[in-house]
Structures are given as C-alpha cells and as structure tokens.
Amino acid sequence: MLYLEDIKVGDRFISREYEMTLEEIKQFAHAYDPQVFHTDEHEAQAHPVFQGIAASGWHTCAVTMRLWTECFPVAYGLIGSESSLRWPRPTRPGDKIHVEVEIVAITPSKSKNDRAIVSYVTQAFNQNNDMLLISTTKIVVFKKDVQPE
C-alpha cells in the first residue's frame, strides 16, 4: 500500500490491460445507460456520432476505476474529493484498455497534518494508443502514522 511518504510529483503508474467485450458493454448499458448506441449494434450503425456500438463513458470510467485500484494502491483507498473528465474517443468492443496515472500535485491539508490532497491525471488508452478517457482527480492520501478518527 502507498502512503503520502511513498509518492511524489511526477510519479507514474501503469495498469494491466482490460478487454471490453460486446456482452459486457451491453450488460452495463442495459443496467446503467440504456441508449441504443450502447445496446444495439444495428441501431448504433446509423448513429451520426458513434457509427457503431460503443461502451458507455461511465462503463469506461468504471473499468478505469478498477485499473486504478490495482496499479495505484493507496492506503485506506482512493478517497475522491474532486474529478473532471473527458472522453475524446469511444470505447469499442474488443478494445484493450490500460490506464496511465501521473501525480501532478500534492497539497498538504491545512487543518489535519496526517494527510494531503493528491492530484493526478489519468489517461485510458486502447491497444492502438488511442486516448479513450482523460481525467484530473483529487484524492485524500494519508501519512503512514495516521490514526483513523
């Protein structure tokens, strides 16, 4: 597990690959984002933007979260405080996603000396190095000697 003392600005973390299957894309979409360009290949072909079935952006986020937890194992978990994100390109069936995380800022807490806000940029890429997602996230990271309240 990583503590505040273990990370510095410029540190990079790279995940394993995760393959998005057509079945998983449809299952996620039916449950959480039931739009035809996520659920029906035929209907998706006629869509003016996607021109084929695409994973929900939220599905891409969920996979990114899974990969974050594996490659960036922060003690006490990835406790988010803020995030912004973009999806520059759709995730397609068969895409093999990996994420790259870079620490861009560490801001010590003004009120609690056992933690800081760590800002990082995440980029999710497919097997062709096409960027599928980019986000800037802030999380709370604790020092090794933290005593949970």
Rank of each mutant, 00 (worst) to 15 (best):
I79K: 11
I103E: 13
H59F: 10
S56P: 08
K144G: 15
D6G: 07
T60Q: 00
L132W: 04
A116H: 07
Q51N: 13
K26Q: 06
Q123N: 15
P48D: 12
G10F: 11
R66H: 14
D6E: 12
A105K: 13
V9I: 15
N128F: 11
N128P: 06
E17M: 03
I97R: 07
T69A: 09
S109Y: 07
I25S: 05
Y76I: 03
E19A: 02
D95W: 04
I14N: 05
M65L: 06
I106L: 01
E17F: 07
S81C: 07
T21S: 15
Q123C: 12
T122D: 02
A46L: 09
V140C: 12
S56Y: 03
A62M: 12
W68K: 09
T64C: 15
G80L: 07
D40A: 01
A116K: 06
S56F: 09
E24C: 00
V118I: 11
L132P: 09
T122Q: 06
N126E: 12
R86N: 15
T137F: 10
L78I: 14
G94A: 06
P88N: 07
T107I: 12
P34K: 05
Y32K: 00
P108H: 05
W58C: 05
T91K: 08
Q27T: 12
A124I: 05
E5T: 00
